[in-house]
Every structure is written in structure tokens, then in C-alpha cells.
Write a protein that binds this DNA or RNA. Sequence first.
DNA 1: GGCATAACTTGCATGCTATGCAAAGATGCA
DNA 2: TGCATCTTTGCATAGCATGCAAGTTATGCC
Lengths: 220, 220
Amino acid sequence: MPEKSAAGGGLREQKKRATRAALAEAAVRLAAEHGVENVTVEAISAAAGVSVRTFFNYFDARDDAFVVIDTDISARVRSTVLRAPAEVPPLDAVRDAIAAELAEAEQQHELWQLHAEVLRAAPHLLVRSLGAHMADETGLAVAIARRLRGGPTDVPGTTATDEDARRSLDLYPRLLAAVAGTAVRVAVEHWSADPAERHFADVFQETFASLAAGLPAPPG
Amino acid sequence: MPEKSAAGGGLREQKKRATRAALAEAAVRLAAEHGVENVTVEAISAAAGVSVRTFFNYFDARDDAFVVIDTDISARVRSTVLRAPAEVPPLDAVRDAIAAELAEAEQQHELWQLHAEVLRAAPHLLVRSLGAHMADETGLAVAIARRLRGGPTDVPGTTATDEDARRSLDLYPRLLAAVAGTAVRVAVEHWSADPAERHFADVFQETFASLAAGLPAPPG
DNA sequence: GGCATAACTTGCATGCTATGCAAAGATGCA
DNA sequence: TGCATCTTTGCATAGCATGCAAGTTATGCC
């Protein structure tokens, strides 16, 4: 029964963390061994030493147990984006924030490996996973929007193209957040098709480079 | 019991299309009226005039009924992309193919509107919708890849940067397909938040313009 | 037309997923 | 210690999803 990162306040809090982690870990290990579809909630609960009913106190749906390893990744991405120097372009800021998180995650290697394996065998879970992790796409969009408002030129007055800018501003953060998430997913999928060939970081950077260049046809 | 677009081969084929469409339409209408969570498979099946068991012959899961409205949109997009003149950049080809389909879809206005409404009220369905699009995504990626191979310069021999190009080629079509899908979703979401303010086509074009420019920070 | 075949639909049986409720147990605090 | 609060659990219930076998309907071939 491993604990989560920062050991929070009281005993209750710790126990909850431990239970959630135990359930998630049990789910992933069982799935790696027997295949996702052959793992029942009952089995997961038993392996974690709690009742089935308790499982559903922690997860809204069976699939969610396979999906969330670290709950607050998206929060960290948001705050990293906000802390980036003002002169860094938004796309770069998002890219670097995500890259940092991915590098971080690789340190929990073994479980992460299993997790990736499980997700690769179950595409519908991969969607759910990326959806869950960075996913409060809307949250990231808000962070980006805030970053833009408090941006480089600390805005004296309103310009002539004001209305036009505001409209763009609404659309742009949403688009950037969504596209970034998609890019990560594509990078992971492409890389995991043949993990040996290239480092993931390499694929990741190429993906974002293509985005930054406006998705031109590659030479060839 | 409306029929689908191009009336396919036999009577069976037609009936299947009709049944699937009836189920999907019933699902969306019931969801719009009573809320997604209050619509049972039984109700959908009854409204479509088939048994519950038959529902599951058409959809793997209840939620899938709310997600796919027109099955062969993606097929038409693919073929349009392939038919585009060779000198058109990939991103533009994809944009125009999708734009054409969307213009088409607006003729079924009312149902489409309902569908967007339902998805907006049910975030988890939107995730699932993503999943559905991902299936098409691979198909679109293949079309893009083929288009690139049979592209402008009809490839005499292999160049020096060959390996590099091949790696890019694998990643690029996937990325373009995925990002295009995401862009459409974002455009729809943004537009549907306030449909009166702008024409959808306008938002759509702005979205793809931002992509083509490499997602630079908007002026402001 | 009439028949054999393949495809589609249906009801039944079964097992898993998910939620509400109330009782019992664990924890935190004075 | 004893009270207030949160958590866990079993039970009941409803809906979701699949396999199977039997009944219906289209299709192709004579």
C-alpha cells in the first residue's frame, strides 16, 4: 500500500490517498496480467482489500481506475504555464510545461510502463486517459487566456482592433489547449508503435515543431 | 424512418441504414428532451421500433448512440482529400474537405443543432465523441499519407534525407488528421457558445488560419 | 416461381456496472 | 472519555451488455 506524493494532513487523508492508490495500482496490475476486459470491479476491490461499494466511492466508473495515476498533473501543467517568462510564446510555454510533466512521470517507471502497456491494448481507455489527465482542457485554456492578458506589453489602453482581438482571444486559448492535448496523444501513439526506434522526447519535440511551423507538408 | 444519403445496394443495406439512423435520431431527440442520463436503451429502442437486443446489435454501448449521426461523413472527407489538386497544401485540402461536409450537414440543421446541444450538456459524451472521431482519424491519416506519396514531384529516386523524411511522413499524417478533428471540435464548441454572434464558417476559417500560422499568440 | 442460404431480429438467461440508503466502524477534537 | 464527522460496508435495485438459439426476412440460383 504505497502512499501518494506529499503526505497530506490527517490520518484520514492519508488513508484515502492510500486506498485510491491501492485501487488504481491493483487495477493496472490486474489488467496487465489478464487483459482489461477480464478485470471486474470485484477483483480490483478484493486485491485492494476493500468492498465493491467502496470502489465506487472512489471512482465514478470502472474504467476510471485504469486511467488516473497521478491526479494533479493537469494542475501542475496549468501553474507551470502561468509561471513561464512573459516573452515565451504560448505554444512553447505549453509544450515545455507538458514536457516537464512527462519527464517527471517517467521516474515512476515500472508502474508507468505497465500503465502504458494497458492503455496501448485498450484504445478507448487511452482516450479516456488523455481526456482525464490534461484535460480539463478548459482549465488549461483559462490559464493560457490569463497568461495572454497579463502578457508582454502590460496593456495601457484599448486599441482600434479591440473587438477583433477579443474574439480571437476567446477562440485561441481553447484551440491551443485542445491542439496541445491532441499533439501529446498523437506523439504517444506514434512513439508507442515502435518504442525502440526513437526516444519519446524526440517524437514529442518533432510534433510540436510541426505545429509551430503551421503543419506544412514534410519534405519528400 | 428517414433514409440515408446515397441509397446503397440491396434492401437489407437500406433497412440497416434506416434502423441505425432511427436509433441515433431517437437517442438524440430523447436526450434533448429529458437529459442524457434519463434516457434508457429501452426507451430509445421503443422510439425506434426495435427490440433492446437489436439496439446492441448496432451500438457497442448505450452512449455510442448519442455520438455518431452520419456514419459516412468521414468516408466522403477522405475521398475529397484524395481528389484535391496536387498543388494544394495538405492542411488546406483537409480544411476544404471538412468545410464542404459541414456545409452539407447544415441542411439537416435541426437535428444537428440538437446533437450539439446534447454533447455540450454531457462532457463525458464529448470525450466519447472524441473516441469515435479517432477511429476515423486513422483512415484520414492514411488518405493524407497516400496523397503525400503520390504528391507533386512524382518521386524519381531516394534523397539523402530519406530516413528523416520517412519518419516525418509517419508522424505527420497522423498529426494532421488528429489536429484537424480537434480544430473542428473546438470551432463547434466555441461557435455554439454564442451562435448568434458569428457565422460558423467564419469561426471555422479563423481556426484553421491560426493552425496554418503555427498557433502564434494573437495580437492584443 | 420456388428453394437453399445467409443475414437480421428477437426473447431469454446471465453477469457486470452503478447508485441510494441506512447501519456500523474509524477518526478528530475538546 | 465522549460527541461529531467522515468512511466503509451490505443490501436492494435498476440499467447495461453479451451469448445463444429460434424465428423472420432478403438474396441468389435454379
